[in-house]
Amino acid sequence: MCPCVMPNKSAESRCMVFYIGKLQKKSSEEKLFYQLAYKSLHKVRLGRKTSAGIPHEGAEEGLFKQYEGDDTDKQQTYIQWRAAMEMDILARLTAGHRTTIYIQPIGTIPASVLNFSLEINNECMPLLDILRCFTEIFFTPKQATVLPAVHISEAGWVIGERTSKLTGEPQLLVRDFYPYLFKRVPRDGVCIMGLSWLDLYPCDKLNFVLGESSCAHKAGVFSFGRFDSRVPQQPSEGVAVDGPMLWQLLKTLTHEVCHLLRLEHCPFFWCTMNASHTVREAMEQPLFLCPVCMRKVQKVCRFSLLERYTNMSTFLKQVNQQCQFVKFMESIEWLEKVMNFLMQTNNPR
């Protein structure tokens, strides 16, 4: 038995299972990784805020910082998520023969954006393939496929539209896309994510949304967001992809796909599944899942934590070399910490 695991019949053990599930079949390093979450949450319950630390010599800060947002009363533990998955027939199918996440471009995207490319793994990847590649790493071993673009008027879609009072730019009503995207999910589709150049709004009362999804339709939509450089009325001119834009696209895409796997917003740690109310808030949040959320996604996808983190580190290093952004650098540094933790746990001195 791992020395950090408490007796199965204890109240502490039952509480740990509630947050992160049973760990008997996990490797020793993955057990300790997930127990970081429980140890930190347990200390918070006792009134001692902390970070989930790295238990090896020289560690000075934790891997996972406690979330301090306003919605910490809304919690979805692993057991609660598992119950939601088991009640949803479509979600259960996700773990079986549904193996592909589809990305559906919507409308006209500027040529300068589509032609933006980076060299990843000795391959010149345009923007949509960069999104596809990262999606495959994040949800490995699921596959990702970019579908041919669909144009709203040509497809006969009826989508709500308005002019933003804040920006003066056109916006599209995100929920109107769901029924149409649902019909375009192939038989092997885990879900489908529409990508719109134009801004999105969720309802009349709210100004905008970077992305939104519907589990009932296995569909979501995300947009390029509110960048000063874009020119919606002249989408073929004057737009350049930079680090912040790419960061936001990667974050919003993976966040919404996690929602389609029945993950709710995370109130436990700073995590890519935290709720956000502004673009700045969304940009500041990490690109990674906390242990509670990771446990859910790993259950669906069944990946090795160390292999997944290694592939993600390789990808982000190549991205940052060609499209530098401080958040990519911070992510690479964090990945080094978590990989060192997993490797040292697996190979103790």
Rank of each mutant, 00 (worst) to 15 (best):
M1F: 05
M6Y: 14
S10A: 13
S10D: 13
A11E: 13
S28A: 13
E29Q: 12
E29V: 01
K31R: 13
Q35T: 06
L36D: 03
Y38W: 12
Y38S: 05
K39F: 12
R45P: 02
A52I: 05
I54D: 06
E57C: 10
G58K: 01
E60K: 15
E61D: 09
F64A: 08
E68I: 07
T77R: 09
T77S: 15
Y78N: 01
I79W: 15
R82K: 14
M87H: 13
L93S: 09
A95F: 02
H97W: 07
R98D: 14
Y102S: 04
I103M: 07
G107F: 00
P110I: 00
S112G: 04
M125C: 15
M125T: 13
L128K: 13
D129Y: 06
T135E: 06
E136V: 04
F138Q: 12
P141D: 12
P148S: 11
A149Y: 01
I152P: 01
E169S: 03
P170N: 03
R175T: 12
F177I: 01
K183Q: 14
G189W: 02
M193S: 02
G194Y: 00
L195S: 01
S196G: 02
D199K: 04
L200P: 02
Y201F: 14
D204T: 12
L210Q: 07
A216K: 12
A216R: 12
H217K: 12
S223T: 09
F224M: 03
F227H: 09
S229T: 10
V231Y: 01
Q233S: 14
P235W: 00
L250V: 11
T252G: 04
L253R: 07
V257L: 08
E264F: 05
H265P: 09
C266D: 10
F268T: 02
F269Y: 10
T272S: 15
A282W: 09
A282V: 08
A282F: 14
C290P: 06
F303V: 13
L305H: 04
E307H: 10
E307Q: 10
R308D: 07
K317D: 08
V319G: 11
Q324M: 05
K327G: 05
S331W: 03
E333Q: 08
W334G: 07
M339C: 11
M339Q: 15
F341D: 08
M343F: 07
N347I: 08
